[in-house]
Write a protein that binds this DNA or RNA. Structure first.
Ligand code: MN
Ligand code: MN
Ligand code: MN
Ligand code: MN
Lengths: 220, 220
DNA sequence: TACTATTTTTAGATTAGTCTAAAAATAACC
DNA sequence: GGTTATTTTTAGACTAATCTAAAAATAGTA
């Protein structure tokens, strides 16, 4: 059996591998888990022993197929629970991550299968992140960050690449949510800030810090 | 913060106190948690240190008000999750205990408050056990075990005092569920086995081992 | 009351997971 | 290419939770 702690390491390694497309470094994992590098090295030995990771001293780590299965399953559970919390219990999208962080460790395949079914087999979570299927496959979606669009182009919000509380709350204030439609009105070359028309209604100016974290599907 | 393990000890002590109306013994707790008496003594010291239990060497333990609050809250969460699993995810009553045993440790007051609301503020769980309110108060219900009824008396099933898998599956086979109505047809004095008429339809013979674990509300 | 059986506690070890400080390996730079 | 700087690993210690075996306390009984 994999412990709560081991699971968190596997998930961290998965996320780093995914984001950087490189083996995860000891320091990178330590940062992600908020622990010391020494603790990470300790745990890497144990995970390698269990054949959940490929680990060579000083060379960084990747997941074995078994480790990958566990990690993607955690992400699947995390995102399904987030859908439950938002769609059924009416939590807001910025409130659910921490709770899902605990719920994802509940070990019951039948529970997840039934939950998935109960929620209508959702393919994306409340933040627009894809929910891997039971085999760990992720759905690929055509998307760009909003800062890649040029004037007059339109897009619909399908996700966010930042999950920080303050960011999501800021979007709430602007009434920007998944499904919101944007038309680029103008772009300031100096600071890359963008004036957009939201849902054909209101014009809002967004900083580059914001637009680069908004994932949109281009509209023709 | 109270750990997963500490919570399980508090719940075990609560259950023993409730069942025996006496301080819980070291061996009693060890049996309940499936651990050694030495481990229990260790943990009792720690829980006493945290002022969650009243503990005097060799004298057994009871819960302090704070310990009691934690224990009843665990039972509240456990039973609410069981309702969710049965009513929303269509699990059967004999499948939910183990999953709820994990879910009960999820720490989020808003989650439980919303879950309670979502389920329609149920007052009893799928096994007929009362769900304590947020203050830890249990609803008292007028009930007797079926073996206390005499011939010609009628009762409706409101709970079971045995939650073992095999017992619940046996009841499933006989199509006995909460709400089932019984009329006592006859009682065999030799072994206290009872012939009942279920829902005015079928006659079944139940052993004393079964009838003593069926909790009914008498009907006039 | 004295002896025996049972229960409970202590003593001492073990394992998972963590830490700090120091040593070793690798990467960066002049 | 040699010297720093950074990263990673090792060494050694700590805590929570567990165990077995032995000692101490309590309960049961003749
Ligand atoms: Mn999340
Ligand atoms: Mn998410
Ligand atoms: Mn239960
Ligand atoms: Mn129950």
């Amino acid at each position: 059996m994999t412990s709560f702690t081991e699971e968190n390491y596997l998930k961290a390694i998965f996320k780093i591998n995914e984001k950087t497309s490189k083996p995860a470094s000891t320091n990178g994992i330590a940062l992600q888990i908020s622990t010391s590098a020494a603790s990470v090295t300790d745990m890497l030995k144990r995970l390698a022993e269990k054949e959940l990771i490929n680990y060579e001293k000083y060379k960084g780590v990747t997941l074995t197929p078994v480790g990958n299965k566990i990690a993607t399953n955690l992400i699947r559970k995390h995102r399904l629970w987030e859908v439950f919390l938002v769609n059924k219990l009416n939590f807001s999208w910025e409130q659910v991550h921490d709770i899902a962080e605990d719920l994802e460790h509940i070990k019951s395949d039948s529970l997840i299968q039934r939950l998935d079914n109960y929620l209508g087999n959702p393919r994306f979570d409340p933040h627009g992140d894809p929910i891997p299927n039971a085999e760990g496959k992720f759905m690929i979606r055509n998307q760009t960050s909003l800062d890649q669009l040029s004037a007059k182009q339109k897009g619909v919000l399908v996700g966010v690449s930042q999950h920080q509380l303050e960011f999501l709350q800021y979007l709430n204030e602007l009434e920007i949510k998944l499904g919101s439609e944007f038309e680029i009105i103008s772009i300031t070359s100096f600071d890359k800030s963008v004036k957009i028309r939201k849902d054909g209604m209101v014009d809002i100016t967004l900083s580059h810090e914001v637009t680069k974290n908004l994932l949109v599907k281009k509209l023709v």
